[in-house]
Computed example of a mutant assay.
Amino acid sequence: MRKISIVVIISLIMLPVLSSCKDKKADQKEDTDTATEMATEIQEAPMNELTSAEIAEGWVLLFDGKTSEGWRGYKKEHFPAAWEIVDGTLHMLGSGRGEAGSKDGGDIIFDKQFQNFTLSLEWKISEGGNSGIFYLGEEKLDYIWKTSPEMQVLDNERHPDAKLGKDGNRMSGSLYDLIPAKPQNAKPAGEWNKIELTVYKGTVVHNQNGENVVEYHLWTPEWNEMVADSKFPALNPEWADVPAKGYIGLQDHGDDVWFRNIKIKEQ
């Protein structure tokens, strides 16, 4: 009888402990399942669409993957024929004419001006290709790059621009011809790169493939001095006076380039 009583007592003592362990395992499994579901949702988010979390955060699509809605040629009312929508991308059909671009091409802009924002997109460049992402651009001169800072898009391995300029300031992710992207973490031609470009009250940050590679501040003495020592004043004496609000543009540099998942969050 004593042995049976001891077993019963021990069982009664251990029951809450076992029950607690069981509950913890259930909670852990539930947490794991939730994390797995969230990861799956992130991985399976459709191309050129926003997740519910992004919508809640205020992100807006600038490209739906199917049409050129919202986009037009720089200083044009139409969308240039040399740009096409293919496989969910904005694709520039390379002309092989370099900076001269395509006959019915040219840079394109989104038909709205932005001030404080984070722009997110993915880009892929062809072998030996060159392109760029413009921001705070104005539509008053013959080319947007004569008024706008540019985040460089480049095949660093093959395009000669990678060896020009100063200290690599014409390589991918750089503030073109002014500040080199460091670290230089661009993926090879033919592979997708992801960028986030943040502009907030004069502070500008280039993020490439998950790393901040450029940071600078507009309108400061340091900015003015840096621009004065570049090629831009000869092209536009007012280039340093970047407006607080302007256009976002994608460059036709005569080479095949693809863009997708273009979205923006204004602040």
Rank of each mutant, 00 (worst) to 15 (best):
L121M: 15
K103Q: 05
I109W: 02
Q115G: 04
L119K: 06
I125A: 11
G98P: 01
E138W: 06
F114Q: 09
G105I: 04
E150R: 05
F117I: 06
W123R: 06
G105K: 05
L119C: 01
I108Y: 00
K140A: 10
S102W: 04
R97V: 00
K124Q: 14
P149K: 12
N130D: 14
Y135D: 12
K103I: 09
S102N: 13
G105V: 07
D107T: 02
D104K: 13
S148N: 07
G128H: 04
A100Q: 09
G96S: 05
N130W: 07
G105P: 07
G137W: 01
N130K: 14
G129V: 12
W123M: 07
D107A: 00
R97E: 11
G98N: 10
E122V: 10
S126C: 13
S126W: 01
M92D: 05
Y143T: 11
Y135S: 09
N130A: 10
G137R: 02
W123G: 01
L90Y: 02
G96Q: 07
Q113N: 04
D142H: 13
L121A: 13
L93C: 02
Q113K: 15
Q115M: 13
E150L: 12
I125R: 09
I108L: 03
D111K: 09
Q113Y: 03
G132R: 01
A100N: 11
P149A: 09
D142N: 12
H91Y: 04
S126T: 14
A100E: 12
G106Y: 02
G137V: 04
E150C: 03
F117A: 01
K124D: 12
F117G: 08
S131Q: 00
S126D: 14
S95P: 00
K124Y: 03
G129C: 03
E150Y: 08
P149M: 10
T118P: 03
F134T: 03
T118N: 05
S126I: 01
R97H: 06
L93A: 08
L90D: 00
L121E: 05
L136P: 03
Y143K: 15
L136Y: 00
L136Q: 14
L136V: 04
G96L: 09
K112E: 13
K124R: 15
Y143Q: 15
L141D: 01
F110M: 07
E150V: 09
L90M: 13
E138R: 15
K146W: 09
I133P: 07
W123C: 08
W145Y: 15
I133R: 06
L136G: 08
S102Y: 05
K140P: 00
W123N: 05
L121T: 10
Y135C: 08
N130T: 11
S102L: 03
K112W: 06
G101Y: 07
H91E: 03
Q115D: 14
S120E: 15
G98C: 08
E99T: 10
